[in-house]
């Protein structure tokens, strides 16, 4: 079966199908994370006491992770821009950097989690930690998903560049849209959980 409009835009939507698809998916993702964020708000306004995030969490590590994620968004968009300029080598470099930065994020997150467990801070400890672990773990899974897709595009999936460069460029753009969304979620997670 041939999927239509993988490299050229449909006349009626003005977009190639995958782009419309990823935007639909991201709209559903907004509701997934939105539900958890509104859960956070309700839990917080109904709690008799609520800790400041920085009393329990490691702000310098989270700031480092913010720098890492923003940088990875820049390298991700540069990997797509490299393909637009037909520079495949540059694409490999920037996509490789994006994957590397994603791993750095997860390693930092791993150290954060284990430090919490060592101090006997678990999701069951209090409501703040319960919502903290829930949202950051879901976000972490999204990072992991991004790593899987980006690694495929960096490695075996990049063969497509030889026979259908436009379709491959579109795939990288779609993966990028997802990746920027994951960055976007962190932009809200960081102040809400760590700073307020």
């Amino acid at each position: 079966m041939n999927i239509p409009y993988t490299s050229t835009a449909r006349l009626d939507t003005g977009l190639y199908n995958a782009k419309l698809g990823i935007w639909l998916f991201l709209a559903s993702e907004v509701m997934l994370f939105g539900a958890l964020f509104s859960t956070y708000v309700l839990l917080r306004v109904n709690a008799p006491t609520w800790p400041h995030g920085y009393e329990l969490l490691n702000v310098p590590l989270a700031t480092l992770n913010t720098i890492v994620l923003i940088s990875s968004s820049v390298t991700m968009v540069m990997s797509w821009a490299s393909l637009m300029m037909k520079k495949f080598g540059k694409f490999k470099l920037y996509m490789g950097l994006t994957i590397l930065l994603a791993f750095v994020f997860l390693v930092v997150k791993y150290f954060e989690y284990t430090a919490k467990f060592e101090h006997h801070l678990f999701p069951s400890t209090n409501t703040f930690l319960a919502i903290y672990f829930t949202i950051t773990a879901l976000h972490g899974l999204h990072i992991l998903g991004g790593i899987v897709v980006n690694t495929y595009l960096w490695g075996p999936g990049s063969k497509m560049w030889q026979n259908d460069p436009q379709r491959f460029t579109n795939r990288v753009e779609v993966a990028g849209l997802y990746w920027h969304f994951v960055d976007l979620v962190w932009i809200f997670l960081f102040p809400v959980l760590y700073l307020l």
């Binding site: 977009l15 782009k19 419309l20 709209a27 907004v30 939105g34």
Partner: peptide, 18 residues
Amino acid sequence: KVTWLFAGAGFLWIVIMF
């Protein structure tokens, strides 16, 4: 405009939810 519509829809729904 279609992309704006989708991005806007995501935003509108989250505003309703909040």
